[in-house]
């Protein structure tokens, strides 16, 4: 199998060509190791970081920005949004605090991306 894609690891946007099958892939067109990792990952198990918000009570504003601590499978983005829509946290929150453990059984936590004091 052969596929051309644009690497999204960073804003460089390298044009990759990924070729191979099973456990055997070669990536060309990348400028760094991240590009190779991304190319192979995209063919075998595409994943994305999910940045979104959850409801926060007792803070200056009503939404707390959060993200998955690591990439989660692309196919689970909408399920994760559903799960996160039910989460309500109380201020104060510090950047890096876990707001939801093991989102959608991925083994990956969702963490706060902003420090929000209680008001």
């Amino acid at each position: 199998m052969k596929k051309e894609m644009v690497c999204i690891s960073c804003p460089m946007g390298c044009h990759l060509t990924v070729e191979g099958e099973g456990d055997n892939w070669t990536v060309t067109g990348n400028s760094c190791k991240n590009g190779e990792r991304y190319g192979i990952q995209e063919m075998t198990d595409p994943r994305r970081i999910l940045p979104t918000t959850v409801v926060i009570k007792g803070a200056m504003i009503s939404r707390l920005p959060v993200k998955t601590a690591q990439e989660i499978p692309k196919g689970k983005l909408f399920d994760a949004m559903d799960e996160l829509s039910k989460v309500v946290v109380e201020a104060p929150v510090k950047v890096g605090d876990v707001v939801l453990k093991n989102v959608c059984d991925t083994g990956i936590d969702v963490i706060a991306t902003k420090t929000m004091p209680a008001v």
């Binding site: 960073c10 970081i49 940045p51 920005p65 993200k67 950047v95 991306t113 902003k114």
Partner: peptide
Amino acid sequence: EQLTGPEYAG
């Protein structure tokens, strides 16, 4: 590293 906007500002 890849940060979100609020993290970078933070």
